[in-house]
């Protein structure tokens, strides 16, 4: 009280390089897939020429979607792998709430985010429990998008990889439903990105631990008295 000494903060290496790389590659892919995907579903009327051979814009849109799709998918596989071998912050245990404490933290975060109450106690230095769960669910959506995407792609491709997903089509009742669902989940990404980016900034602000820059440099900042390891 009287002694208003600043508490010493510590630099903690939270996001290892593979996680950061994954994150930004993924962010770029998702944006590219979302935009090109939306265009595939709702092509713009760009007909400045009257002859088909003079332009190939829709072909390019699809090309970008498919190339990005492969990057997106293998990048995602890297992240899955890293979930088993990365540091504590990257591990799968962060994503699925196994422990009571994680549930308590989720309630806490919800209060902070929604009711804008003051932060009480500690929120995990890595992903907070709620964020972790949301990321986990979004990983499932990544997977769903990839599976449905490759299932659709399988009929346009004779290469072995997309063909692995061909069985999805009859399972979901035909190409049309697969495409429909693939389209629907694009909107998940739109909402996810809006809320995610905002919350990153918001938490940076309420936590004051350097959340935003952490996905660039890898470091977060934590009070020494609270970070022991």
């Amino acid at each position: 009280m009287a002694s208003a000494q600043p508490i010493p903060y510590q630099r903690v290496y939270v996001w290892e390089f593979p996680v950061r790389l994954y994150h930004w590659v993924n962010a770029v892919c998702v944006v590219a897939l979302g935009v090109t995907g939306y265009l595939i579903g709702n092509p713009l009327a760009i007909s400045y020429s009257s002859e088909a051979y003079q332009q190939y814009w829709f072909g390019w849109v699809r090309f970008i979607h498919f190339v990005t799709a492969f990057v997106f998918f293998f990048n995602f596989l890297v992240r899955i792998y890293w979930g088993f071998v990365g540091n504590d912050f990257a591990r799968w245990t962060n994503f699925i709430p196994f422990k009571r404490a994680q549930y308590r933290e989720m309630v806490e975060v919800l209060k902070v985010d929604v009711l804008q109450t003051k932060i009480r106690g500690l929120i995990s230095l890595g992903h907070n429990a709620l964020a972790g769960l949301i990321y986990f669910l979004s990983f499932l959506v990544f997977l769903f998008q990839a599976i449905t995407g490759f299932a659709l792609y399988s009929s346009m491709s004779d290469s072995f990889f997309p063909r692995l997903f061909a069985w999805i089509v009859p399972l979901m009742g035909g190409d049309n439903p697969v495409r429909q669902w693939h389209h629907v989940f694009m909107w998940f990404f739109v909402v996810f990105v809006i809320v995610h980016v905002y919350l990153v900034f918001y938490h940076d602000y309420v936590e004051g631990r350097g959340t935003t820059s952490s996905m660039v440099g890898g470091y977060k900042f934590e009070r020494e008295d609270e970070y022991k390891s």
């Binding site: 009327a45 007909s47 190939y56 829709f58 072909g59």
Partner: peptide
């Protein structure tokens, strides 16, 4: 070809 060219 019109599809690929974006002519709809």
């Amino acid at each position: 070809p019109y599809y690929d060219a974006g002519l709809f």
